[in-house]
Amino acid sequence: MKKRRVGMVYFEIERCKGCGFCVEFCPSGILRFSTTYNEKGYHYPVAEHPEKCTGCNNCGLYCPDYAIWGEASEDNPE
């Protein structure tokens, strides 16, 4: 069975202030802004293609608000 590096992206949407860094800097381009608002009135990120997440955590490094992060797991079979 072929193994490939697969990740998960997590959100804490109420912390988001909608700067868009994660959407812009996700290397896999899997994020987009929500159409709805969080409690503070910001569009927050949603994963449009969560299956493409590599768990690189670039979003986590770029998020100034600790509202998104990625985690990699090694053992997800395709």
Binding site: Y10, E14, P64, Y66, E71
Partner: peptide, 28 residues
Amino acid sequence: MSKEKHPLSDYLREDRMPHMWCPGCGIG
């Protein structure tokens, strides 16, 4: 989407989040 802890949650005072910095501020 299942929610896990932020990787820095042990190092952040999460009880004080969201913080007071503006949207797009780089301090975070």
